[in-house]
Amino acid sequence: MAYEEVKVQTPLYLKILPVLSICAFFGSWEFIVKTGIVPSTMLAAPSEVIKLFIVKLTDPNPDGAVLSQHAWISLKEAGIGYLLSLLVGLPLGLTMGWFTTVRGLFRPVFELIRPIPPIAWIPLCIFWFGIGLWGKVFIIWIAGIVPCVINAWVGVGMTNPTLIQMARTYGASDWQIFTKICVPSALPMVFGALQIALAYCWTNLVGAELLAADQGLGFLISMGRRLALPQMVVLGMVTVGIGGAVIGVLIDAVEKRLLAGIRR
């Protein structure tokens, strides 16, 4: 075929470098704790964390649940909150970008709520929902909705005006231009929003759980502090980190498939 795709190979050193950097990071961490440069009461060595990780896979003590239970609770809270924020934030942002009426209606309220840090809602949430699942879902929802709205809105605003004119000359309606031109051209920004919202949701989840929870990774971290077990704190942090990274990679993969034509 005349139009063959070109395959580019990653050079060997680019494959080795990330592995090297991870090894160096954990190696020096282990080193400074084991040699006593940093006392073990202040920071746990990676090997201690791994040991605790293995124990926590099966032992619910001393914090009341095994690791998978904590992770599952957090994942559930973050997942529901994240999905709800996408469900509300993306349509809202996209329509705000194109329909002036929607923008006029929602922008003032949005601008008022936007600067309030999500964790400031915690007290009200406890009044409304107690310390159960839905209070945290609400905080995560508030956290995730802001980048969704802004990115979707800006994405629609960045639509190439000539494409809109082109559609108009064919007689496309406002709605057709919105769905067939503005929304697809906002997609790269929307996928950016998915990543940013995820980060916001995940960070605020831990914030919410630190203050009001009886299970979850944030709770695990605060229990570690109360029980003076730095390895438990680090285990909670590392699990949060890995969880976020895995979801990020998944979103990236989906994005690459869907945006084939735009970013190749």
């Binding site: 000539t162 082109m166 064919y170 496309a172 057709q176 067939k180 945006l259």
Partner: peptide, 25 residues
């Protein structure tokens, strides 16, 4: 129909889908 000075291809559509756009509308 209007052919603009600058190319007006939708980057998320294949060549075929781009050509079909006017007919779809």
């Amino acid at each position: 129909s209007f052919v603009f000075q600058e190319p007006t291809c939708m980057p998320w559509r294949t060549v075929r889908q781009n050509v079909a756009y006017g007919m779809e509308v």
